[in-house]
Design a protein around this nucleic acid. Structure first.
Length: 289
DNA sequence: ATGCCTGAAGGGTTCAGA
């Protein structure tokens, strides 16, 4: 099963590139962020094309900013929009959606940016990350699971994808000195990410490429992509059982090239067949004649 | 320069992004 995450920076503007990319990379599940579309507009603008491409869609958006969605052609059930007890700025924003796809519980998130460390938005970011941790702990990582005595609904298969807006370590930014005192690299943000990982999640791209220079975002300005001056802030975090199935994990830099790209590149992860062989959607048994 | 591009809303400019 191939799962990908991509901050598209407007699904409307990116639609032609998204469709050709789906055809080229052939993912089974896609997590999208910054769709910038309300749900009705998402369905109207993308629904037909995505359906023709074989994807079911769950979208959680708003008109102007934010917005997340999950596309799947291996089943899409038990959709949950938003987070339990999520803080707002001041109102709750469309930054999280979850569903079950092909035997994996998939969480798609767009973490608040934080703007500057002394801002109210930064405190909002940290509070939102705490709510994400608590929501995951409550919904999919019950205590029995952490103790290893019981599996959650999807057999312990869980993946958290999205624009996390935190560079996990200094090797995830092009120049650590240039980021001193800025968001995305501060100790409290990295501690919040560590709290997420402490649930038992694995940063699968970094685990597969421990020392590589890997970025997922490059500013549009000043030729940053051309000079490969970026950051790795789009992550795929997998539970232990899911991380053991990872056979490939990479950033699709080609999707950042050419005309009219998003400023983020997709992250693509390939999962091998689950130990019990259950990799597809549940298919109802044939009805008796 | 200290927002250099890009997108959205809505109005001839502003805000947001990281």
């Amino acid at each position: 099963m191939r799962i990908a995450t991509w901050n598209v920076n407007s699904a409307k503007q990116r639609l032609p590139r998204l469709l050709s990319w789906l055809e080229e990379r052939d993912p089974d599940v896609v997590c999208l962020q910054e769709t910038k579309l309300a749900d009705a507009a998402f369905e109207q603008l993308l629904g037909g094309e995505l359906s023709r491409a074989g994807y079911q869609v769950a979208a959680h958006g708003e008109g102007r900013w934010n917005g997340v969605a999950i596309l799947s052609r291996v089943g899409l059930t038990n959709v949950v929009k938003g987070l339990q007890e999520a803080p707002g700025f001041p109102h709750q924003e469309a930054r999280a959606i979850a569903c079950s796809c092909g035997g994996v519980r998939v969480h798609c998130v767009y973490v608040p940016n934080g703007r500057t460390p002394d801002s109210e938005h930064y405190r909002y970011k940290l509070n939102w990350l705490a709510a994400l941790r608590d929501s995951l702990a409550a919904e999919t990582f019950p205590a029995e699971t952490l103790a290893g005595t019981r599996s959650p609904g999807d057999g312990g298969q869980l993946i958290l994808c999205g624009d996390i807006n935190i560079a996990p370590s200094d090797i995830d930014v092009f120049d650590p000195a240039a980021f001193l005192g800025q968001t995305h690299v501060t100790e409290p943000e990295r501690a919040a990410l560590a709290d997420l990982l402490a649930l038992g999640l694995h940063d699968v791209v970094r685990e597969h490429w421990p020392h590589q220079r890997i970025f997922t975002y490059w500013d549009y300005r000043a030729g940053m992509f051309h000079r490969d001056l970026g950051m790795r802030i789009d992550l795929v975090l997998a539970s232990g059982p899911t991380s053991q199935r990872v056979r490939a994990a990479w950033v699709d830099r080609a999707a950042r090239k050419g005309s009219g790209p998003s400023d983020h590149a997709p992250v693509i992860v390939d999962l091998d067949t689950a130990p019990d062989g259950d990799i597809g959607p549940t298919v109802p048994p044939p009805s008796a004649p």
